[in-house]
């Protein structure tokens, strides 16, 4: 599949960083504002899909391989399950929030019910893991379908 016109490419180039920054913000603030790993990952993946549709398949195929995306997705899933098992190991229960109320990263307790970016225990880490998984997974679906239809055409 060839790319679209110059107008579409320019608009996609302008819009892609804004969409990506917004999606990463939704992932990073998952424990404070509405959203979370899945929602932010879907936003970032839709920005990547916009780039893939605008610039054409062969351009994207030269930048990123679908094998790497599968590996990133497995890494996200392993991080998620690993955090759950770490809860079993250190907190006594599967999915236990062992990081809260400690002096480690993300371990602070909220003062007067107002949480900030450093609170939440394992929640931000799980958000990052699930966000990585969803970005890689959804973009892998779009990319693989684009490559398959491209090869079928010629």
């Amino acid at each position: 599949m060839k790319g679209m016109s110059t107008i579409v490419k320019t608009i996609a180039n302008i819009g892609f960083p804004i969409i990506t920054i917004y999606g990463l913000y939704v992932i990073a603030h998952g424990h404070l504002t509405p959203g979370g790993g899945f929602q932010g990952g879907a936003i970032v993946a839709s920005g990547l899909a916009l780039l893939a549709v605008a610039h054409g398949t062969s351009w994207v195929e030269s930048k990123v391989k679908e094998h790497d995306l599968s590996m990133l997705e497995s890494l996200g899933a392993l991080g998620f399950i690993g955090l759950a098992f770490l809860g079993l190991l250190m907190g006594g229960a599967f999915f236990s929030n062992f990081l809260v109320d400690t002096s480690m990263l993300f371990g602070a307790i909220p003062v007067d019910g107002a949480a900030n970016i450093n609170t939440g225990g394992t929640l931000p880490l799980m958000n990052f893991a699930v966000g990585l998984k969803v970005i890689a997974g959804l973009f892998a679906i779009v990319l693989v379908m684009a490559i398959a239809t491209n090869k079928e055409e010629d």
């Binding site: 424990h31 404070l32 509405p34 949480a115 929640l123």
Partner: peptide, 13 residues
């Protein structure tokens, strides 16, 4: 859980 977003704390914790 130290999170203001109750939905995330239910979903992940």
């Amino acid at each position: 859980t130290g999170a203001n977003n109750g939905v995330t704390s239910v979903v992940f914790d």
